[in-house]
Amino acid sequence: MDKTIIYIFKFLFLFCIGSEIWAGPSKRKEETIVLKKQIFGFHRSDEETKSIPYLEKYLTLSPSELYFKLIYAKALLYRDDLPVPRNDENIETRINKTKAIQTNYNKASKIFQENVLHLEKVRPRDPNLGRWYYVWAFSEWFSDNKEKSIKLFQKAVKLDYRLTESYYNIASLYESLGQWKDAELYWRKYEKAEKELEEED
Rank of each mutant, 00 (worst) to 15 (best):
L66E: 10
R28E: 15
I33F: 06
L70H: 08
L70T: 07
Y78A: 07
K74L: 10
L82S: 04
P83Q: 01
Y78K: 14
E56S: 13
A75R: 04
S51W: 04
L55C: 07
I71L: 12
R79P: 01
K74P: 01
G41R: 05
E31L: 14
F68T: 02
E48L: 13
D46F: 03
S64R: 06
T60D: 02
K37Y: 05
F68W: 07
K36D: 10
K69Y: 11
D80W: 04
D80E: 14
K50D: 14
Y78W: 11
S45V: 13
Y67K: 09
E31Y: 01
I33E: 12
I52K: 00
D81A: 12
K36A: 02
A73D: 09
L77W: 05
G41Q: 10
L70K: 03
D80H: 09
V84E: 11
I71M: 10
L77S: 11
T32M: 13
I39C: 02
L76E: 08
G41K: 08
P83F: 04
A75V: 02
L61F: 06
E30P: 01
K69W: 14
Y72Q: 10
A75T: 01
L61S: 01
T49C: 09
A73N: 06
D80A: 05
Y54I: 03
G41S: 14
K36P: 00
E56W: 11
K37M: 07
P63G: 07
S62V: 15
E47F: 02
Y67P: 00
S51V: 10
S62Q: 14
K69S: 12
F40W: 10
S45G: 00
D81Y: 09
V84A: 04
D81C: 11
D81F: 11
S64M: 11
L61N: 00
D81R: 05
E31M: 13
D88K: 03
S51L: 04
T32V: 15
R86A: 14
K27F: 12
T60W: 00
L55Q: 08
E47T: 00
R44D: 12
Y54W: 03
D88I: 13
V84C: 01
G41A: 11
K57S: 08
Y72I: 09
V84P: 10
Y54M: 08
L76M: 06
Q38R: 12
S51N: 03
R44M: 10
E56R: 13
F68S: 02
L76S: 08
I39T: 01
A73F: 11
I52V: 12
A73M: 12
K27D: 09
N87E: 14
E65T: 13
S64Q: 11
G41N: 13
G41W: 06
K74N: 13
E48T: 12
I71C: 02
E30M: 01
P53K: 01
N87M: 11
S51M: 05
A75M: 06
I52C: 03
R86L: 15
P83M: 05
L82A: 04
D81N: 15
S64H: 10
I33K: 09
V34L: 12
E30G: 06
K69H: 15
F68C: 02
P85Q: 07
F40R: 06
L82T: 01
D80G: 14
F42K: 10
Y72E: 06
P53I: 04
I71V: 13
K37D: 12
K57W: 03
D80P: 07
